[in-house]
Computed example of a mutant assay.
Amino acid sequence: MRERPALTVAVTIDRHRAPTRWEDWRFSIVDVTIDEGQFGDQPLQLHDDGTVARFLHPGLRVELHTDEGEGYYLNLTSGQPSWFVWWRIDDDDPSMARPQMVTLSYHEAGRQLDAEERVDTVVLPPDVREELQAFTDAHYRPEPKRRVRPASFKAPDQR
């Protein structure tokens, strides 16, 4: 069995303390970085000034699947190709957010959003965009558009 093309990435998340009087914490996805093992395998706290803390979560695998070709195509043609980061607030520690998955498929991100999960985007770097474009070109062909005949040209019993 052939292994799927994949990248390992690290996700950087900022945590803001009490950004409003109604929120204890607010989280934002800051960056997605290629992880070649230099970050270890445990989350790292990069910064904490009492108001904003920054955490790096390494070791997330992004696999490319041939059956997700349309989702990759839609991402590439969206005007702003992106990483899609699905993340959750930790149930045991609400002051922490953890990435669950990173994908390049517009459809996969949509499925997570349909399930009412949190998904944020980070702009895709040019080198990863080129790799995704090459994979999509090799494995996906958009269906040709079919002309729909106007109802006025159809017989009344076919309308």
Rank of each mutant, 00 (worst) to 15 (best):
W22H: 15
T8Q: 12
V128F: 06
E131G: 13
S95F: 08
R21F: 09
H57G: 02
K154W: 12
R61D: 14
P126V: 12
L113R: 13
D67L: 14
G37K: 13
A10F: 03
R129W: 04
D93F: 10
L64Y: 05
Q100D: 15
P19W: 05
R88T: 12
E117H: 12
H107T: 12
E63C: 05
Q42E: 13
L7Y: 09
A18E: 09
D24W: 08
P94R: 08
E23I: 11
P142W: 09
K145I: 14
R17A: 07
Y140K: 12
Y140R: 10
V62A: 03
V9M: 10
Q158S: 10
R26H: 08
I13K: 00
E108G: 02
S78K: 08
S95K: 11
V9R: 02
R149D: 09
L74H: 11
Q100C: 14
G40R: 11
K154L: 08
G110K: 00
D31N: 10
L124K: 03
H107A: 09
G37A: 13
P43I: 03
I29A: 01
F39D: 05
Y73I: 09
R129T: 08
E3H: 14
Q42I: 14
E108P: 03
A53K: 00
A155T: 14
M1I: 15
Q38E: 10
E130N: 13
R15E: 04
T33N: 06
P43K: 06
D35C: 04
M96A: 11
E70H: 08
W86M: 13
R15F: 01
G110V: 01
S152A: 09
R61E: 10
V122W: 07
D48C: 02
L74N: 08
R88E: 11
K154F: 11
E117I: 12
Q133T: 14
P43W: 05
Y106I: 04
I34G: 04
T103D: 03
H139R: 10
R98V: 15
L74V: 13
M1Y: 07
L124T: 01
V30G: 05
Q42G: 07
W86Y: 09
R88Y: 09
R61T: 15
P94F: 03
P150W: 13
L60D: 02
I29V: 15
R159W: 11
A10E: 02
F39C: 05
R2I: 15
P81F: 03
